[in-house]
């Protein structure tokens, strides 16, 4: 059973008139509908299925409808039409009280500009979700402290948010979400406001945490590198529509339409694809001991060195365990195919 299913969901800002409905029916684009009616189609007939424990990235340019989409999932924004299933239950129509309960039980959200409460200490901020659920003080502070430890901030619990750097503030935002202990984590451009180095660090940390936590994460970003580095699967959005859904490898090596093609054409695949994206499972009879070893989270270019001296196969390990084999031919194919320099164009 999928954790999140978005079925034909549309969100229109502004009047939803008969005219808008008809234009949508005729599959007119967001811009056409805007200029003809003045209403903004933020999300248009979106269909997505998000599985348990995957990191699902929604990526697209500013204004493409990412924030609206993620808010449709926890119903901060009500859909204009379509259905939303969470863990198999249709939640498109809930009463106000049911909606609250539904949010408390299922979701924690992390925001772009952190959205911490300036008058609360780091610890109390972290405990907010539990406080809302009326958990006794001692218990919730204990959980909050544990969450702060997870993000490496237990020494700062008595500070106010504005005494921390941006990166640390977002760790608090993450801790607040983790303390809540829900199995779905919604992150709207959570790292976009951070400096590039801090950002990379946070991405790596999220990946590491996720290996332990196994939550279902919906992560919004406008940055392709970020999408490729943390996503198990990626949905590309354009003008409210979902242009393609696929694994990082599929998106990069097999763009389905011109928009996605344009998006990925200039990237250096060896620096965004990871070993795990191109490896194949090892079968039990194979002797993997002789091969050089590479980590599954390593970027592909890291394999170049090991492929020297005619070696054709590397053993992929994740945390000491063999998880697959990566072959030279496959690496070559992934990096080269569809990426050839066109003679005429040069």
């Amino acid at each position: 059973m999928s954790v999140i299913e978005i079925k034909n969901v549309t969100k229109v800002f502004g009047p939803y008139t008969k005219e808008v409905e008809e234009l949508l029916h005729k599959n007119k684009s967001k811009n056409e509908i805007l200029s003809e009616t003045g209403s903004t189609v933020a999300v248009k007939s979106a269909n997505l299925t998000i599985e348990k424990s995957e990191v699902f990235v929604v990526m697209g340019l500013s204004g493409s409808g990412k924030s609206t989409l993620i808010r449709l999932i926890n119903r901060l924004i009500d859909p204009t039409s379509g259905d939303l299933m969470i863990k198999g239950k249709n939640v498109s129509k809930l009463s106000t009280a049911e909606l609250r309960e539904f949010r408390r039980k299922n979701f924690s959200m992390v925001f772009q500009s952190f959205a911490l409460f300036p008058f609360k200490s780091v610890l109390d901020n972290t405990a907010f979700g539990l406080e809302v659920r009326n958990m006794p003080k001692k218990e919730r502070l204990k959980k909050a402290e544990h969450a702060l430890k997870l993000v490496g901030l237990d020494g700062y619990k008595n500070q106010k948010p504005n005494q921390l750097s941006g990166g640390m503030q977002q760790r608090v935002g993450l801790a607040r979400a983790l303390a809540n202990d829900t199995d779905i984590l919604l992150m709207d451009e959570a790292f976009s406001a951070l400096d590039p180095l801090i950002r990379k660090e946070m991405q790596n940390e999220l990946i590491q945490l996720q290996q332990k936590m196994q939550k279902t994460i919906v992560f919004i970003t406008h940055d392709l590198d970020e999408a490729l580095s943390i996503g198990d699967r990626i949905a590309l959005m354009k003008d409210g529509e979902i242009a393609q859904v696929g694994t990082p490898e599929e998106i990069v090596t097999n763009p389905e339409n011109d928009y996605v093609k344009a998006f990925v054409k200039d990237i250096d695949r060896s620096k965004v694809l990871k070993v795990k994206h191109v490896m194949r499972p090892a079968n039990s009879q194979e002797n993997t001991d002789a091969n050089p070893v590479i980590a599954s989270e390593d970027l592909l270019y890291k394999s170049y060195d090991s492929f020297k001296n005619g070696i054709r196969e590397l053993t992929v390990k994740d945390g000491g365990k063999v998880v697959g084999i990566v072959e030279f031919d496959k690496v070559f194919e992934v990096l080269a195919v569809g990426n050839e320099v066109e003679e005429d164009a040069r």
Binding site: E101, S113, V132
Partner: peptide, 29 residues
């Protein structure tokens, strides 16, 4: 009060009273 802080409050499932007492009034103080 910034929209995001209100969203943060809503996303954790606050009742209108919780939102008022724990978020809005302190921020508007």
């Amino acid at each position: 009060i910034s929209e995001e802080l209100i969203e943060a409050s809503d996303s954790f499932g606050t009742t209108p009273m919780q939102k008022l007492l724990k978020v809005q009034l302190p921020l508007a103080r």
